[in-house]
Computed example of a mutant assay.
Amino acid sequence: MPRLSAACVALALLLAAPALADRPAAARQEMLRHIVRQDCGSCHGMTLNGGLGSPLLPQTLDGVAAESLADIILNGIPGTPMPPWAGLLDADDARWIAVELKKGFPP
């Protein structure tokens, strides 16, 4: 089996860096979990099974792209109770939440 050169390893790490940079730090992830459970949960249900807002479960979000969910999180849905969160969350936060919702939001 051929050995990878240091340059190949460095290139692989550089290519992976943007994906890692989008992931919030562990403390921020904990804060985002709290926001989703408390703030989003007040409308979407504490277990995200729905309430005033629709369910936020993997099976109900299956046909929705993570980028679309992130856009909804940041900009809200005009004419509905879904508010924009852009004042409290940035694009990386919204993208992380969207991906986690599609996977099944952790407890």
Rank of each mutant, 00 (worst) to 15 (best):
L14S: 12
G45Y: 05
L56K: 01
R23D: 13
D62F: 10
G63H: 04
A66T: 02
G63V: 08
L15M: 11
G79E: 04
V36S: 04
G45W: 01
P24M: 07
L52S: 12
P83C: 11
P55Q: 04
A25K: 06
V36A: 03
Q29C: 02
P78F: 02
S54Y: 11
Q59S: 15
L57M: 13
C43L: 08
R37H: 12
D39M: 13
R23Y: 10
D62I: 12
I77G: 12
S54A: 15
M82C: 06
A19G: 10
A66K: 01
G41V: 03
L14C: 13
Q38K: 13
H44T: 02
D22N: 15
D62M: 13
C40A: 14
A70V: 08
L13C: 10
H44N: 03
S42T: 11
A70K: 00
L48A: 04
G76P: 04
L15S: 11
A26Q: 08
G51Y: 03
P78I: 00
G51V: 14
I72E: 07
A26M: 09
A25W: 00
M46W: 14
S68P: 09
Q59A: 15
E67S: 14
Q38I: 14
L69S: 02
E67Y: 08
P24H: 06
L74R: 02
G79L: 02
S68I: 13
A70I: 05
G53M: 08
L69F: 01
N49M: 15
A19M: 10
I35T: 14
P18G: 07
L56I: 11
A66H: 01
D71W: 03
A26W: 09
P78T: 05
L56R: 00
G63D: 06
